[in-house]
Simulated scan of single mutants.
Amino acid sequence: MRNRLIYCDTFGDPKEVLKIKEKEIAPPEAGEVLVRMLARPINPSDLIPVRGSYSHRIPLPYIPGYEGVGVVEDVGDNVGAELIGKRVLPLRGEGTWQDFVRVPAEFAVPVPESIHTNTAAQLYINPVTAWVTMTEVLQLRPGSVLLVNACGSAIGHLYAQFARVLNVRLIAVVRNGKHTQKLLNLGASEVVDTSSQSLFEVVMEKTNEKGADAAIDSLGGSAGSDLAGCLRSQGYFLSIGLLSGQQTNWGAFADKVQMNIFHLRHWNRKVSPAEWHNIFLQIIGFVEKKRIRIGLTKTEYDFETIHQALTAVSDGRRGKVLLTN
């Protein structure tokens, strides 16, 4: 069998450097499964390495894709044949932007039939990041006040839903009022539109001048500084992204709040396979019980139309773009 894959052999604009080629499928090695991919989303985190941000640790040629879902086609030695034909999340192996992916069997996450393929394809990056940062890193308790910016995004919507699950008071920060009602419906306690409201004034009013207990920043730069300035003394500031392309001035807050960075790949390295699967069991359980809903699919594209898919990602409309077979 032949395997189509999307790759780059130089870093740059994804629309310019991503190519498609075919090669023979390598059989799974001992402890691996071979997965025929069904769907994988195009996330910002998939495109950042293509642009060269991590060129110091990513060898070329590079196959993008951190998440997705597929069906086990074959297994290597020491892997039970009962996995063949099962849908799994083939994570922490090869890049998912190809027809077939080899992945360590211990990290392949089974997906119940009750979960739609397009939903299953999005169960990793955003849900795991949101759940782990709230429960393990920040260890939020019922009644904790959490600030999260860029809440109009897919992960922002998950933070709102998990806030309801955990009984956390989420103050969702947006730069456009169109997201307000949606976030309140999902579970946010307050929504601050910084285009028309003072974040600091709203947070102080809602916390009796104490400040928030924790903040999660996806933007960096001045937006990150604004979040940090709304924390109580020794509150916890956590950076999970740098969408603005600018660093927050951490030195200005070092003596006032606790500051840290969360990288999902670092968390991956330290958790055991059992802990890894337990996180997914929790998230899958929330989805099955409809306690959380994963972002809606905007459009599906086949491999051969990857450049049209990239255009759809950049057009600014809401919804997730999926690469399907």
Results as ranks from 00 to 15, higher is better:
A120W: 05
G143V: 02
L138H: 05
L166D: 06
L184E: 03
F100W: 11
L140G: 00
N126L: 05
N167M: 06
E94G: 12
V109S: 00
V137W: 00
P142K: 11
R175E: 07
Q139L: 09
V168C: 09
R169N: 12
R164H: 09
H179E: 11
E136K: 15
Q181E: 15
P110R: 04
L138C: 09
H116K: 15
T119A: 13
N126R: 01
G152T: 08
L184V: 03
N149T: 11
V109K: 01
N118I: 14
T129Q: 07
Q122Y: 10
W97I: 13
I171L: 11
L166T: 02
L146W: 01
S114M: 08
R102H: 06
G95I: 11
T117N: 11
G187K: 08
I115P: 03
Q139K: 15
Q122I: 00
F100H: 12
A121M: 03
A130C: 13
L158V: 11
L183H: 02
L140I: 06
V173R: 11
E106H: 09
R164Y: 00
E113Y: 15
A163S: 15
A105T: 06
N167V: 01
R164V: 00
F107C: 07
V168S: 08
A172P: 02
L170W: 05
I115M: 10
T119C: 10
N126Y: 09
A105V: 10
G93D: 12
